[in-house]
Design a protein around this nucleic acid. Sequence first.
DNA 1: TAGATATTTAGACAGTTGTCTAAATATCTA
DNA 2: TAGATATTTAGACAACTGTCTAAATATCTA
Lengths: 97, 97
Amino acid sequence: MLNLPFKALADPTRRKIVLLLKERDMTAGEIADQFDMTKPSISHHLNALKQALLVTDNRKGQNIYYSLNTTVFQEVVKWFFNTTRVNEGGKADAEDK
Amino acid sequence: MLNLPFKALADPTRRKIVLLLKERDMTAGEIADQFDMTKPSISHHLNALKQALLVTDNRKGQNIYYSLNTTVFQEVVKWFFNTTRVNEGGKADAEDK
DNA sequence: TAGATATTTAGACAGTTGTCTAAATATCTA
DNA sequence: TAGATATTTAGACAACTGTCTAAATATCTA
């Protein structure tokens, strides 16, 4: 289901986190440093992204590294392709599954 | 700014409306008929899509026809391209503007 | 103009969301 | 083991969202 990913991406802070993780894996603390917001708030956003399966986390000692899960992204991108290919022949299997 | 479109697409009812309008322009009433929801509620969703510039409306007599605005869609798709093209060379201008 | 049809606006209300502070948990190191 | 560091969990709270009913607005037609 695409509902959680779409809801996760509705927040600008979470979209920015995604862009950060696109460049490289980062620890929760490194991510938090990029925002004018408390660490618990960032932790909450990371959890939303994790619930949506858009990121994965991996503890290494004291740090927890977050990584982008591109697989779920592809699914969201597909939804957009189904939507934007208007009148290009062939019913494009465009359900919101 | 992409915030309104992303927020608009966070709701499953609105995503379904978008898929309907992908096939053909429809009146508010025709759209409402596809849902188990009151017309004021659908009107509210249509307004959210309109505020996000994802759809346009056009009155014809008693009816108001809604159409998909593919231009704004392209912008959202671009955001995903900037995000998914990981490690494919060239810093991909990936700000959330 | 009166009545019917199409749609939106207004206002209420419960549920969800984003943020915070305080406290808890996990790990490392001296 | 004690203290320092990294991160999350718990709980509170204001703001936002999605839904509804009732009423208003716009248009058509007899």
